[in-house]
Amino acid sequence: MVAFHGKQEVKDLYLGRVRAHRAADQLQQNFGYWRRDGNGEFRGCAVGCTLHSSNHGAYEAELGIPRILARLEDGIFEGLPAERAQAWPEEFLSAAHPGADLSMVWPQFVVWMLSDSEWGIARFAKTDKTRAAIERVAEFYGRLVAGDAIAYREWRDADAYAAADAYAAAADAYAAAAAAAAADAYAA
């Protein structure tokens, strides 16, 4: 899968669409994907204004962008301050060049998200067991980025280990559950 199926015109189409929706004040957080408001006008979130639907998987078919990145775009959009969120869909689509291989963007993001010393989830670990679960999943993603093949069984075991820790330590559940979700997302 390559970004925008290797075609500048595909990128231009979707960038033009999100720019037009932003200019028309149709880009809205916490509204839903793509639907009519009380005045009969269409509005939507980052994904809705890009696709005119709620199907994150359509990013793959229509834009050549992995659906996990569509979900990431959506989550970031909804969590940004309102003014900052307005520019996000355009920035997201602008970041990739037509033909770029985006397959390692999610694994690289997960390594950062789990293990970065300043921003990573590992800093929230309250026990050594939780820290180990997070580090194990980050290690797997690091191996993936390095080009190693990781067996499904290894992903499943990492998921089970991280999930078991999440349930065992309720106070630490947020950090361990994030690690489990990252492993599960790849296994799926």
Rank of each mutant, 00 (worst) to 15 (best):
R36D: 12
D37Q: 14
D37L: 13
D37H: 10
G38Q: 12
N39G: 15
N39I: 12
R43P: 05
C45Y: 01
C45T: 05
A46I: 14
V47E: 01
V47Y: 01
V47P: 03
V47A: 01
S54E: 04
N55M: 02
G57N: 13
E60G: 02
E60W: 06
E62M: 09
G64T: 10
R67E: 11
L69G: 01
R71A: 05
L72S: 06
E73F: 11
D74W: 05
G75Q: 11
I76H: 15
I76A: 10
I76F: 15
E78Y: 09
G79P: 03
L80I: 09
A82G: 12
R84Y: 09
Q86L: 12
A87V: 12
P89Q: 01
P98W: 09
P98Y: 12
A100Q: 11
L102K: 01
S103L: 10
V105A: 05
W106I: 04
W106K: 03
P107H: 02
Q108D: 05
Q108N: 09
F109A: 08
F109L: 14
V111S: 05
W112C: 05
M113K: 07
L114T: 05
L114N: 01
S115P: 09
S115E: 05
S115W: 03
S115G: 11
D116N: 13
S117R: 13
W119T: 13
G120T: 14
R123P: 10
A125T: 02
A125C: 12
K126L: 04
T127W: 12
D128L: 07
K129R: 15
K129N: 12
R131S: 02
A132N: 07
A132C: 06
A133T: 00
E135S: 07
E135D: 15
R136K: 01
V137D: 03
V137S: 04
E139I: 14
E139C: 11
G142R: 04
R143Q: 10
V145D: 11
G147M: 13
A149E: 01
A151Y: 01
R153P: 12
R153E: 08
R153S: 10
E154A: 00
E154L: 06
R156L: 06
D157N: 13
D159L: 03
A162L: 14
A164I: 12
D165Q: 02
A166P: 04
Y167F: 14
Y167S: 04
A168Q: 12
A169N: 01
D172W: 06
A173F: 02
A173S: 11
Y174Q: 00
A176L: 13
